[in-house]
Structure formats: structure tokens, C-alpha cells
């Protein structure tokens, strides 16, 4: 077994953001699909009310997260790469069953494997913006010509609703797969523990830049 070292991978805000976002998205999905008449849970009126409030909460959270990503430089984690992409796909399809090692080493400056980079980037620049924009248009839609705001002066809610529903299905598919992939870390629970506590046992390969960990650790402590 390789030498491992406890590293503070996920900072406080990062975890706060992650869990809040997770719960808000699940709450939005639960209420959203109720509004879509897929089932009855809270009751229609309450569902609409929760959905609208949770939407604002998520938007505020996203604004803070964007600020955090740029001020910390963490946005670089999502720069897509093709390096190891195929190996990562092959790992999930075959290697994982043979107990093969993870093809991408998780380090503090590269927390995400190439598949994660691609998917999370897609979420950040495509799916979440589509949901936020279509959601806001949905929220501020005021019927044909009924409003002075030109962007909401559209003839029908249908296209907006269809886009919003499409995004909802995609996000739910992501959540299902994402929840499962939590278990594919070094151990079954290591990813979950890391996202809760911030600490994770990583392979000790940071010899070339040992300061990195030390500084952050000391700051947090």
C-alpha cells in the first residue's frame, strides 16, 4: 500500500456550498415535479411557495459560490482535459470491478478526475445557468404583453416550461449517478467523509510541493 497523508481537501465554504446546493436542488426537484403534477407531496400551493423561495436561496448561494471560485482560483479545477479521460471511463466500466487503482490521482490542486471536470463544468456553465434563466423567466412571466419587461413579454409559457423540465430531468439523472459515485472513492465512505469533514486520506505524492498542504492546514487551524 502506498503512503497516504491526511489532507484538508474541501474548505469550509466549499462544503457549505456543496451541501446547501445539494439539498436545495433536491428540494427544488421534489417541489418542481409536484408542480408538474408528477405526484402530490406538500400540496400544490405550498410546493410553489417552497420552489420559489428555494430558487432564490439557490441563486444567492450560486452568486457566493461564483465569487468564491474566482477569489480562490478554484475555478481552475474545472478546466477540462482529455488526459486520462479514456482511462477514467475504462476504470468505471472495467477497472473498478478488478479493484484496479484510480487512474487519476486526487491532489489538492487537482481534486477532480477528467470525467468529473467535464461533467461539473457542464453543470456550471450549461445546466445550472439554463435552469436559473428559464426559472427566472418562468417566475417573472406575466402573460402576453402583460408586462413592460420585454424579455418576459413572450407569447407562451410552453417553451420555457419545457426547457425547465428538461433541465430538471438532467439534474435528477446527475444526482442519481452522483450519489452512487460517492461510493467509488478509496473506500466506500471516504468521499462522503471528505465532503463532510473536509479531510481525506490522499496518496502522498505532493513531495514536490509540500508547502501547499502545510500552509492551508495551518491557516484553517
Amino acid at each position: 500500500m502506498k503512503k497516504t497523508k491526511k489532507v484538508y481537501v474541501y474548505q469550509g465554504f466549499e462544503r457549505f456550498w456543496h451541501w446547501n446546493q445539494a439539498l436545495l436542488i433536491i428540494l427544488l426537484a421534489l417541489t418542481g415535479f409536484e408542480i408538474h403534477s408528477s405526484y402530490t407531496l406538500f400540496g400544490f400551493e405550498t410546493a410553489v411557495s417552497i420552489h420559489n423561495k428555494a430558487a432564490w436561496a439557490l441563486i444567492i448561494l450560486i452568486v457566493f459560490a461564483i465569487f468564491w471560485h474566482f477569489t480562490t482560483g478554484e475555478w481552475k479545477q474545472y478546466i477540462p482535459t482529455t488526459k486520462n479521460l479514456q482511462a477514467q471511463v475504462e476504470f468505471y466500466l472495467f477497472g473498478i470491478f478488478r479493484n484496479a487503482p484510480h487512474p487519476t490521482k486526487k491532489t489538492l490542486i487537482s481534486k477532480l478526475n477528467p470525467l468529473q471536470r467535464l461533467v461539473y463544468l457542464g453543470l456550471k456553465i450549461l445546466f445550472i445557468p439554463v435552469m436559473v434563466v428559464s426559472g427566472l423567466v418562468y417566475m417573472f412571466y406575466r402573460y402576453p404583453q402583460g408586462d413592460s419587461m420585454e424579455i418576459t413579454n413572450i407569447e407562451s409559457l410552453e417553451l420555457v416550461a419545457v426547457i425547465h423540465t428538461f433541465g430538471a430531468f438532467m439534474l435528477m439523472a446527475f444526482v442519481i449517478v452522483h450519489l452512487y459515485l460517492i461510493t467509488t472513492g478509496q473506500t466506500l465512505t471516504s468521499n462522503l467523509k471528505a465532503m463532510i469533514t473536509g479531510w481525506e486520506e490522499l496518496e502522498d505524492e505532493e513531495e514536490d510541493d509540500p508547502k501547499n498542504n502545510e500552509t492551508i492546514k495551518s491557516e484553517e487551524a
Binding site: Y8, G12, R15, F16, H18, W19, N20, A22, L23, L24, L27, F42, T46, S49, I50, N52, K53, A54, A57, I196, T197, G198, W199, E220, A221
Partner: peptide, 25 residues
């Protein structure tokens, strides 16, 4: 202390949506 703050943050993350639900209801 670090673990403690982590747990606090984790619960905060759960409590925030709950506040939203109770506000809505």
C-alpha cells in the same frame, strides 16, 4: 475544533433549506 466546525457547517447546510420550507409554509 476543525471537526466541530465541519459538523456545524454540515448541519447549517441542512437547516437552511428547512428554514425555507418553514417560511414557505
Amino acid at each position: 475544533i476543525k471537526n466541530f466546525t465541519s459538523v456545524i457547517l454540515f448541519f447549517l447546510a441542512i437547516i437552511t433549506p428547512l428554514i425555507i420550507v418553514s417560511l414557505a409554509m
